[in-house]
């Protein structure tokens, strides 16, 4: 599964893995804005940014083909809209949609596969995102594995029962799926109550206290400066020297 692979990648030990999540988030946002606001010489710029990201992926010790392939998850969706633009007589815009969304997805993927999600959420918290929301996201991610596994068991069980009347009784299968979801819902609810009890048993006072694990050092500042400048310089250079204005 996608998130399991990303989590495995995020346990690496490269220099990029060791950077403070805030430095990586800052550089990510700069990259995304550079890509999102670009409008001239897009193919050349895309090539330059792709080279930049690929270099970072390789330096982080993440398999390049795997990362490029996983970022391509966005392509089916964007290709539809790219195609629509092309049909509407604006192929340049269609191409821009595909290029920009692919590069953005690759950049996000690079950050997530070099940072553990809890560290990323902690970084977002110190950058000003609402802590309550981030705690919810943290629990969501923690129990995503558990509840997904339960869902898989249930859909297997449903399939083994429903396989005999495939195609005949869509209505019955619809009801079966709804019943499975209802059971999953009730179980998840019960799971949440168990978790809350376990929290209370260990003295939960009503709000979360967490270990301070982040340290923004000089190396992080240098990284943030360099990683932010790289895409800006790349874009400026391409827009200045590229022969074909798009």
């Amino acid at each position: 599964m996608h998130h399991v692979v990303l989590e495995r990648w995020s346990r690496g030990a490269s220099a990029l893995h060791r950077r403070d999540p805030r430095a990586k988030l800052g550089a990510l946002v700069v990259f995304l804005v550079v890509a999102a606001t670009a409008h001239r010489a897009l193919p050349a710029l895309a090539a330059a940014l792709l080279a930049l990201l690929s270099a970072a992926v390789i330096s982080a010790g993440i398999p390049l083909a795997g990362a490029l392939g996983r970022a391509a998850l966005v392509l089916p969706f964007t290709a539809v809209f790219g195609g629509a633009c092309w049909l509407a007589g604006d192929p340049a815009r269609g191409l821009a949609l595909v290029l920009k969304s692919y590069l953005s997805a690759l950049a996000v993927l690079l950050v997530v596969s070099t940072t553990s999600l809890p560290a990323l959420l902690r970084g977002l918290e110190t950058a000003g995102a609402p802590r309550y929301l981030l705690m919810v996201a943290q629990f969501l991610y923690r129990y995503l594995f558990v509840i997904s596994e339960e869902a898989q068991h249930m859909s297997k069980a449903a399939a083994s029962r429903g396989a005999t009347f495939r195609g005949l009784a869509a209505r019955a299968r619809f009801r079966g799926a709804a019943g499975a979801l209802a059971v999953l819902f009730a179980r998840s609810y019960g799971r949440a109550e168990d978790i809350h009890r376990a929290m209370l048993a260990r003295g939960f006072p009503g709000h979360f206290r967490t270990l301070d694990t982040l340290h923004f050092g000089r190396g992080d500042a240098v990284f943030l400066a360099l990683a932010s400048f790289a895409p800006v310089v790349a874009r400026a250079a391409v827009e200045r020297f590229a022969r074909w204005p798009a």
Partner: peptide, 23 residues
């Protein structure tokens, strides 16, 4: 923050629910 686990787990439920197909 007592309902944080509830909202998180129900969020995970919605995620997981998307793997169950309705004909």
């Amino acid at each position: 923050e007592a309902r944080v686990p509830l909202l998180g787990v129900m969020g995970a439920f919605v995620f997981a629910a998307q793997t169950i197909n309705f004909p």
